[in-house]
Design a protein around this nucleic acid. Structure first.
Lengths: 134, 134
DNA sequence: TTTGATGCAAACGGTTTGCACTTAT
DNA sequence: ATAAGTGCAAACCGTTTGCATCAAA
């Protein structure tokens, strides 16, 4: 449950924070701050973008979500799945898919003598759906 | 030779463009626009940042270098090696290493039915050198 | 001669900061 | 009571754009 997750992360439970976490976690959407803000406006018309920024930062720090910046766009996207995984970005429709490739075994391993702590990776191309239109 | 590379890419050969390409290509530095600009000032005091931006864009489009945006920082870095490869970023000293992992076989393959055209990936952690200080 | 490059100033967009007010604990 | 969250306005910073000038082909 959302409230428990926040408590476990030692974060105060506010309406805004709960709904933001719920929104990011519930869908596979990988929303931007602007998307989150527009969604939140519907259920909390007084919310400010600053609050959205504040919360994605605290949620990311707490490890409940994961902020990812993709090449090309300046905007960050927020992933409800904080565990390490690869992404696939469609160059036509822009959809971001989670990939179930095995990259867990990379963490805490060594590559060329460097200690690997995290992996941030994506593949891009044309997604399954868009391939039909080619 | 730099001039030939530009000619082959159908790009006009200017002093600024040649030196920018030379700087990015010659070193393993993965410089930012600001780094390139500061270097260029030494050999071309009248250069503007706009020119650096113009050139990294045209060189990237022509495939002579590769622009990469890493998570966390807003700044892009420019890679003199335009072929697809993985990176390793040290969280302590910030150095970006090229990794010689085999990711060429991923290109033009399919994952989950999606057509993969490019890979943008990095591992982060503590590099070989910084590990000594831990 | 024509097409593209240079570089200035101003705008842009996502994000951060300072701050007074409010709320959860 | 106190530590943290909210939300406004303004700043910030990397990047882009418009435009007049200049140089490569």
């Amino acid at each position: 449950m959302i409230t428990n997750k926040l408590r476990a992360a030692a974060l105060k439970s506010t309406f805004q924070r709960e709904k933001i976490l719920e929104y990011i976690s519930s869908r596979k959407e990988h929303p931007t701050v602007d998307k989150i803000y527009k969604h939140m406006l519907k259920i909390c018309p007084t919310i400010s973008k600053t609050t959205v920024y504040n919360n994605v930062k605290s949620l990311d720090k707490a490890g409940l979500i994961k902020a990812v910046k993709f090449s090309g766009k300046g905007e960050a996207i927020y992933d409800g799945n904080p565990s390490v995984h690869y992404h696939f970005v469609c160059n036509k429709c822009g959809t971001i898919f989670d990939l179930d490739l095995d990259c867990k075994n990379i963490i805490k391993k060594e590559i060329d003598g460097h200690l690997v702590e995290n992996v941030c990776a994506y593949f891009s191309g044309v997604c399954k759906e868009c391939k039909k239109d080619l």
